[in-house]
Amino acid sequence: MARQDRALRTRRAIFEGAATVFDERGYESTTISEILERAEVTRGAFYFHFPSKEDLARHVLAAAVTTDGVPENRLKLQQLVDTLLLLAHRMPHEPMLRAALRMSVDLESQRLFGTRWPDWTSLLADLLREACERGEIYQHVDEDETARLLVCSWTGVRVVCEGLPEEYDLAQEVAKLLHLILPAIAVPLVLAKLEVSAERAAELYAGLSLAGTEPAGARRDDEEPSERPHPNG
């Protein structure tokens, strides 16, 4: 069990170290040597867990599609709101999420890996369909189209705010965006019940931190030797 714990810690260190460098330098400019230095692991340990830098990047992108910390809610529209707010609050705190976004908007990375925008769109569309079945949104709302526009708008807020000279609270900006969009899709009775604020995002994040959730791409139960030769040296 001790070796499994060590393996999990090593994998997570590699995962988080790579995400930090991807976020700072971009995928193309990042070398495996930089990842090893940041993660403080050996080359053998790296190749035990990930066959290549490309494979590691795909894990980072996959792990960014997450609803960790979002509680089940009888109002599916609230669950959708919580997903977008919590992601906004997590973004400044978690290099993995920032790295995934940077790779997703970089044209060269898109060519290599594609993006996870379709996954996010599908996730939000499913919540909107549930909301429709429960009478929470107007019948004329197109769930797939609305989900796509939400993903586009959320991403645009993040990218634009990052490039502005002033500092912005991303969760607060996303809350403003939702206040503009929700009246167009939510029936009045449900709209009045929704909690949409940066404060709610912070509360959700506090719960996530207490739970100690780690990125999905960092989880693996394999054992790992301290050194393992690799054919590429």
Rank of each mutant, 00 (worst) to 15 (best):
L112W: 00
F113D: 04
G114K: 14
G114T: 12
T115Q: 06
D119E: 12
D119I: 00
W120R: 01
W120V: 01
A125F: 04
D126E: 11
A131D: 04
C132G: 13
E133Q: 13
E133M: 15
R134Q: 07
R134I: 02
G135R: 11
G135Y: 03
I137H: 07
Y138S: 02
H140I: 11
D142C: 00
E143W: 06
D144N: 13
E145C: 02
T146S: 08
A147D: 06
R148S: 08
R148V: 03
L149S: 05
L150D: 05
V151R: 02
V151S: 03
V151L: 00
V151K: 00
C152T: 08
C152N: 05
T155G: 07
G156Q: 07
G156E: 03
V157M: 04
V160Y: 08
C161H: 09
E162A: 09
G163C: 04
L164W: 01
L164I: 00
P165F: 02
D169F: 05
L170D: 11
L170K: 04
A171Q: 08
A171Y: 07
Q172P: 05
Q172H: 14
Q172A: 15
E173L: 09
V174A: 03
L177R: 02
L177C: 12
L178G: 11
L180K: 08
L180Q: 09
L180R: 09
L180E: 15
L182F: 06
A184K: 14
V187Q: 14
L189V: 13
L189E: 15
V190E: 13
L191I: 13
A192E: 10
L194E: 12
V196R: 10
S197Y: 12
S197F: 07
S197G: 13
S197L: 09
A198W: 10
A198N: 05
E199K: 15
R200V: 14
R200T: 12
R200E: 15
